[in-house]
Amino acid sequence: MFKGFADWVKSLKNEGVEHIASEERRAFLKLGLVITGVYAGGKLLSVVSRVREVYADIPEYVDKYPYKPHYSMVLRTDRCIDCQLCMEACRKTNHVPPYGWRTRILEQHLPSGEGQWTRRFMPILCNHCNEPPCVRACPTRATYKDPETGIVKVNVKKCIGCKTCMAACPYDMRYFNEEKRAIDKCDFCWESRLSKGKFPTACAKACPAGVRIFGDLADPNSRVYQLVHDPYRAIWVLRPSMGARPNVFYTIN
């Protein structure tokens, strides 16, 4: 009986996905499924998982770590409790004025059933993108991608304070520093710590919950590499549609 059913299913012709309403497609997308075929007058649908798309080991990312070390951060975002010790440490270490920021924490209310929500905090910082929109936008080449480490830095002497990079940054991670008369941003603590042989960044060191994992993405022994390349772990980046290819990754658990 089941064999007959299998044969019947195989004999069906794909009627094309063009006639499916976009609401229905979207409903499936929310479940993590893509409709690839329609059979038996729309009664049967063939679907495939699109879950792999959010994993980091998609061709776009895998083994494309052109820097040595290729500095990167993984944020285990569900562990964040918004104690803001990272922000305090960053302010102190990098002399960030009260009106500025190099890292921030966002609060999300994720819906969890009727009228209920769960809180989730999400730290954000410069994503040190592989294709940084800010670098492309800078008219004086004051902001640049360090050819060795991939860190997006600002040359204060070249910066004219036009703020074009601020507008170009998809993550709002640049501010105008009145004292420097230049744009200031996260440099993964390069000036204050890494260049002096101190590891990791001030924020990662200050975090009591182990949210911020900092390291070399090109080193298979590093924790960031292992987290990003874990095939059973969902990893995502913020605003992937910008095509900036960030080096700051998010995960839970």
């Binding site: 569900d78 409790i81 918004d82 104690c83 803001q84 609060e107 769960t118 809180r119 919950a209």
Partner: peptide, 12 residues
């Protein structure tokens, strides 16, 4: 588990 159930953060 469920850190942010009790931890309301500086913002909260």
């Amino acid at each position: 588990t469920r850190c942010a159930s009790c931890h309301i953060g500086v913002m909260g």
